[in-house]
Design a protein around this nucleic acid. Structure first.
Lengths: 240, 240
DNA sequence: TAGTGGTCTAGACCACGGA
DNA sequence: CCGTGGTCTAGACCACTAA
């Protein structure tokens, strides 16, 4: 956070973190109390608290009012996948807009968008390419709004959440992903220059506004020989 | 974080968050300065800073020293997948330990574990079942340590990171996931009670210690008709 | 009762940015 | 120059926990 790492509170946090990371303080054990640290460093309590706050936020410590601070057990339960559009889940990819049209929603599409079957939906079809060739087909759906032409430029270069947010003139609140495996259909395989029946990743993304209403849906199929998703899990939020 | 939501700093944060969420403060705009909030609420600067700190940590605001606080643009780039073992990526699953044995590492396994081919590796094979039947096969590998019998009880109920950490007597630092799509092999399909050539999710997990050394590797194949991974992306870390 | 963390105050000095 | 946020102080009162 701070550019200068020379702050005293920062030093307090580093020292405590070091004790935790080297096993001098084990999960479940009590960390030094605030007053002990005030004493040890010869600084004021608020400064000590600022340092401890970094470790609490980072998941290293948790506090029990009336008792003290305890060392938290590391946990690797949350996988984080970097889905920045320009890097396409960690890899550089060239995005090409193939087609924009409108379709009438069938039952499944209507269910996803929480609208009625027969509703008019805007559809965008994109291809993602790496140097080796086509990697994925992405099909994105937005509610159709007449009199609001979308700029193809934007469609091609902005990521889906941004397009959907601008299209609906709202702020996005949440995005939900579903990741599965499918066999490529004939047309999909053709577009991806491979054989039908090849295994592919299928990544669906549903966008919601603050009211929990769906703003857009996308379905992407990826040649699994050219692309795998990667994610990491860290026990701590690195802040110190 | 705090049990009582009646703290003044908490109120400051809530009020600012409300302004951001309702569009009264737009991304890129400058938030009220600390001194303005001191004035407006009639409280001291440190209390104001505590409130603002919640929003900064939550990703609502960022500070530019010498200038002020700005409203951050919401970003949905980080997908979070809850991989708690007992819920198996969000779904309840019965885990059965099928076999524990030792194998000699072939080239690919040796590469994953960063050891030499021919090295002895401990292998655990598990099956995951839902009410509908078998869902996934999980094969886990740990470096073999003689004289350290693993308790089958633990193997069955503890999650892989915990087993690996205890086995190697270290603290885990990181876990890396690779998610792809594969076609089920004959034996896999048989164990999963389906046909060879069915599409399946393949989730690999590599565990590292603090020195970046691999501590364990697992490969799981999941019937995609019975299981899909789900993840969410939130623009903000909810703290207020 | 003594110790803990949670909240809050009213100051202070600093580095940085912009007019 | 003044306003901004970043750091730090030396107190205070509170609710809670444990002995």
């Amino acid at each position: 956070m701070s550019a200068r790492m020379t702050a005293i509170y920062y030093r307090v946090a580093e020292d405590l973190k070091e004790k935790i990371m080297t096993g001098k303080l084990l999960p479940g054990e009590m960390a030094p109390s605030e007053s002990q640290l005030v004493e040890a460093y010869g600084i004021s309590r608020m400064t000590v608290r600022q340092g401890i706050g970094l470790l609490v936020d980072g998941g290293y410590l948790y506090s029990v009012p009336g008792k003290g601070y305890y060392v938290a057990a590391p946990n690797l339960d949350k996988i984080i996948i970097d889905a920045s559009q320009d890097r396409f889940f960690g890899q550089k990819m060239k995005v090409t807009l193939k087609k924009v049209d409108v379709v009438t929603a069938d039952d499944t599409l209507a269910a996803k968008m929480e609208t009625r079957a027969g509703e008019i939906i805007l559809r965008m079809q994109l291809t993602l390419n790496s140097r080796e060739g086509p990697v994925a087909l992405d099909c994105r759906y937005l509610p159709y709004r007449k009199g609001e032409p979308l700029l193809e430029n934007e469609l091609q270069y902005a990521d889906f959440p941004h397009i959907a947010a601008r299209h609906s003139k709202v702020v996005l609140a949440r995005s939900q992903f579903t990741i599965g495996a499918v066999l490529l259909a004939v047309e999909e395989a053709k577009a991806l220059e491979t054989e039908p029946g090849t295994a592919a990743l299928c990544i669906e993304q549903l966008l919601f506004d603050r009211g929990g209403k769906p703003l857009g849906w996308s379905r992407m199929v990826c040649r699994s020989d050219r692309y795998v998703m990667t994610g990491v899990a860290y026990p701590y939020a690195e802040r110190v």
